[in-house]
Design a protein around this nucleic acid. Structure first.
Lengths: 335, 335
DNA sequence: GTGAAAGCGCTAACAT
DNA sequence: ATGTTAGCGCTTTCAC
């Protein structure tokens, strides 16, 4: 573990550490021959710069912190891959942490990243995050933050989302066009802006048609499979009539589908279903689930590009603080 | 971004930085009143220690690096959660990176972790990793390494696996007991020890029964869905007879299942299938896939415990360098 | 073109 | 119980 340092190189070459440092960093002042000398010895001795020392000196770490609810969700793991892609290309490494849908864990993660003097944070909020004061604090301390997908209102930072409103609007319009009349919405936490927009898109689509909007047909819950199951079980037990479901995301849609089948209801003949995110599993379940594709990988890349520009104080890749990427309806068997 | 440092505290309190440092770290020598004084001011001023400086000084980072093929696989994301769990409890943070099944990327990731003076590395090898010289190099530089699931032979480090041999043996014995006679094996890269053991378990189960073992019934390929598809397509095109499949993992099993269905073959009546890993998707596909459950979360926790003990030079939680956890057959519709 | 010296924030041996 | 000093490995002014 005995690391070669620039001091070692300096000693062997009879030069000063500053010359070594400059040579290694290709500083214009240094004689080209000296540079060669230094670099040759460095490779020969397998010199590896100590990033910790360099970071301490330069006061920033070239590490990007990511906080997502759960990496096991296909959407998030794809987004992370996108972030990694851009990060590596720009000489940044990536630290991933999960909030497990728990605000408290989210706070801990955020703070721990900060203590490690992370260069910036890319975050997608947990379900239980009601307010984002912990991120506002970091922001005020100068930490660069980009939010994606699960973003919050009322925090002044860059955000990368999909046009949740429009995509939801289109999906529900599609259901209406197919003749469905009692379309319920299994909604997510309205503190999350994307969930709110999905709800608003649903509402607008209904109101723009000749159907009466009923708030009683909106059921607010979580974003897991169990939430979808519970909602539909309740509806069936209470004999509430509906012929289509617009779910806030795919797990909820799948949970709903499972319960419907168990109760002898046919999908889509008796009840149609549309989910959100295009999780690969939606293609495998039977019936396969109609859903909305979010460009997860692209969202990750975009978030990273923005964050890195922010860190470097460079020109931003986007004009607006709110980047909206396109999402599109993927037709399958369930609707 | 102007950080409060111990120097600031020292100045305000008229004490030396060393006293502040010791007070903050609860050093026994320090007067209890002084400690209170220091800690109170620290909280008041929102002092946050600079980990980079601390790490530079102590020459280690309290960061654990993870390298997995792809985080989107349920097995790996669960394992990562397990690692995180233990890491956080012990004051370590976690840096995740993906090799994308590419050795070259794996090498880059490993080296980048090393340059960042990571405290240790937990790795599950990529499919394309034929030799592990890059890890041997790190090992010789004193980096602590733990391998899990996709481990290699011929490298002297701690490993956490499932009893792949026994689990495979049991699965194939189960198929034989059900009366299947032409059981093929869709095998993974034999450079990965777990793949090799799954193959050996398959072979032993066959040989221990009254069935002739035929190497022609073993098909070596990758670990993705497409590999399973390709193999089965070829078999069908070449009219090779088989009545059961033991696949090296779930994606391969699912790929096989899809092609069988497409060709009008019934699962399990015409061909039975058993996968490996208990990916949640195996429960959702139709027919659901019989598979072997690996305790992913536990494996992650165990790997992290071992690595941290290794880093701290503490007593090891395991007696052997090879930890084997139990895997068990989960019966579903496909076999 | 190169060197000397200071400092990033923190810790720890060695005083006192 | 507290202070002084040095140093972790690197970069960067300021000299020459």
């Amino acid at each position: 573990m005995n690391q070669i340092t620039i001091k070692d190189l300096a000693l062997k070459l009879g030069l000063s550490t500053s010359t070594i440092s400059r040579a290694l960093n290709d500083h214009p002042d240094i004689n080209i021959q000296t540079k060669k000398l230094v670099n040759d010895l460095a490779t020969k001795l397998e010199y590896e710069p100590n990033f910790m020392a360099r970071n301490l000196q330069s006061k920033n770490s070239h590490q990007i912190g990511i906080i997502v609810p759960e990496i096991k969700h296909d959407f998030f793991s794809k987004a992370i891959s996108g972030i990694e892609e851009v990060a590596y290309k720009n000489g940044f490494t990536v630290v991933v942490s999960q909030s497990n849908e728990d605000v408290e864990r989210e706070k801990l993660n955020a703070n721990s990243l900060y203590l490690n003097r992370i260069a910036g944070i890319i975050v997608s909020l947990s379900q239980t995050t009601k307010n984002v004061d912990h991120f506002k604090t970091l922001l005020s301390k100068g930490v660069k933050i980009v939010m994606f997908d699960r973003v919050a209102e009322g925090i002044d930072t860059y955000k990368v989302v999909v046009d949740d409103y429009q995509a939801s609007y289109d999906a529900v319009k599609y259901l209406i066009g197919k003749g469905f009349k009692s379309i319920i919405h299994l909604a997510g936490p309205q503190t999350l802006l994307n969930c709110k927009n999905r709800y608003l898109g649903y509402k607008a689509a209904i109101e723009d048609s000749n159907i009466e909007f009923k708030e009683e047909l909106v059921f607010y819950g979580g974003m897991h499979e169990d939430d979808g199951k519970m909602d539909i079980e309740n509806l069936i037990n209470n004999k509430i009539h509906f012929d289509a479901i617009f779910a806030v995301n795919d797990p909820v849609a799948i949970g709903a589908s499972v319960v419907l089948k168990k109760n002898g209801l046919r999908v889509p003949e008796d009840v149609a279903i549309i989910g959100f995110s295009n999780n690969p599993i939606t293609e495998y379940v039977s019936p396969s689930i109609t859903t909305i594709d979010q460009p997860a990988y692209e969202m990750g890349k975009m978030s990273a590009s923005i964050l890195i520009a922010l860190i470097r104080g460079e020109e931003m890749p986007t004009t607006s603080k709110n980047t909206k990427l396109e999402a599109k309806l993927i037709l399958r068997e369930s609707a």
